[in-house]
Simulated assay, not measured.
Amino acid sequence: MMSDNLNVLTFDIEEWFHLLDYDDTRTEDKWSNYEVRIHKNVDRILDILEESGAKASFFIIGWIAKKYPEIVKKISEKYHVGTHTMNHQLVWQQSKSEFEKDVEFGIKILEDIAGKPVNAFRAPGFSIRNSEAWAFDVLQKYGIKYDCSVFPSKHAHGGMPVEGVDRPFIVKTENGEIKEFPVSVKNVLGKRLIFSGGGYFRLCPYFLVRKWARQSAYNMSYIHPRDLDAGQPVLKGLSPVRRFKSYCGLSTAESKLRAFVKDFNFTDIPTADAKINWASASKISF
């Protein structure tokens, strides 16, 4: 049974070791020390989409594009491509000028490889908070039309737990507007629960994912290649809580995603954009 709700599917294309706020993999100079698993993990995603016919948007790290341009070419042949910054750093750990360079370089390398404009962005770790609202001005400056960085609940690396940001809305910047596709939430007993992306998707039983998605008019799902990689190594030195969050549900996530794309009619961001009545959407200035 297909759902007629607006279901948007996105993938953040990064390596299995690209955990945020973890010193051993924080910077590019350390990434070459780890096993390369991105090719087979991206192929797994593309196989799932090919079998289901689902559309999706892909937010790709510029470093991945620089190292493995063939991945970008393969994805961009059939799917919408956005940027996930150049070097996968938290926004609030950067100055405005550092963030601007990261965004500029990330867009340029993707456009050079894909041969088409890059108009969508997602911040690593959903790390645009109210205090980093200047980031939207930067994104608008570099031609970003769609942002998917708002996390409308508490989050270890960011979050905007304020009213009115749990459905598509318009962000007003100094020089224009950006259409925002936030992470979707389910309100349960007064709490905003995330269920359709990342570790939340891995942890949540599929019958609840399906039930809550069917009850929601808008669903934004986000998956990382590592979420589907049950055989990945375990990074050392993580706290018990961080280790649980990073590795829970890996063994069942692929089968859950395969069921998800069969049970729901997923689309990409540009297609979803055309289905939204933006004239009635909220306009927010942070």
Rank of each mutant, 00 (worst) to 15 (best):
M1I: 11
N5R: 14
N5P: 00
L6V: 12
F11A: 08
D12A: 09
E15Y: 05
L19A: 02
L20N: 09
T25G: 04
T27S: 08
W31S: 04
E35D: 13
H39R: 13
K40Y: 11
K40F: 02
V42Q: 10
E51Y: 01
A54V: 11
K55L: 08
I60Y: 02
I60F: 02
I61W: 00
W63M: 08
I64G: 01
K67T: 10
K67C: 09
Y68A: 05
I71A: 07
I71N: 11
I71V: 15
V72P: 02
K73G: 03
K74A: 10
H80R: 02
V81P: 01
N87A: 13
N87C: 03
H88V: 07
V91Y: 05
V91Q: 03
Q93L: 07
Q94P: 00
S95D: 06
K96C: 02
E98L: 06
F99G: 01
E100H: 00
K101P: 00
V103I: 15
F105L: 14
L110Q: 07
I113C: 04
R122Q: 08
F126P: 00
F126L: 05
F126S: 03
N130G: 02
S131H: 11
A135P: 00
A135S: 13
F136C: 03
L139K: 08
L139G: 03
G143R: 09
F151P: 00
F151S: 06
P152I: 12
K154A: 06
H155I: 01
E163Q: 13
V165S: 01
D166T: 06
R167D: 09
K172H: 02
K172S: 12
K172C: 02
E174V: 06
E174S: 14
E174W: 00
N175H: 13
G176L: 11
E180F: 01
P182F: 09
V183L: 15
K186H: 11
L189E: 03
G190Y: 07
L193W: 13
F195G: 00
S196F: 08
G199N: 08
P205I: 12
F207V: 12
V209K: 11
K211W: 13
W212A: 03
W212H: 05
A213V: 05
R214N: 15
S216A: 15
A217M: 03
Y218D: 02
N219Q: 12
N219S: 12
I223S: 07
H224M: 08
L228E: 09
D229V: 07
V234D: 01
K236L: 12
L238A: 06
L238Y: 05
V241K: 15
S246W: 03
Y247R: 10
C248W: 13
T252Q: 14
T252K: 14
A253E: 10
A253G: 05
S255A: 15
L257A: 06
R258S: 03
V261A: 08
F264E: 09
F264I: 11
I269S: 04
A272G: 04
S280K: 15
S280G: 07
S282V: 04
I284S: 04
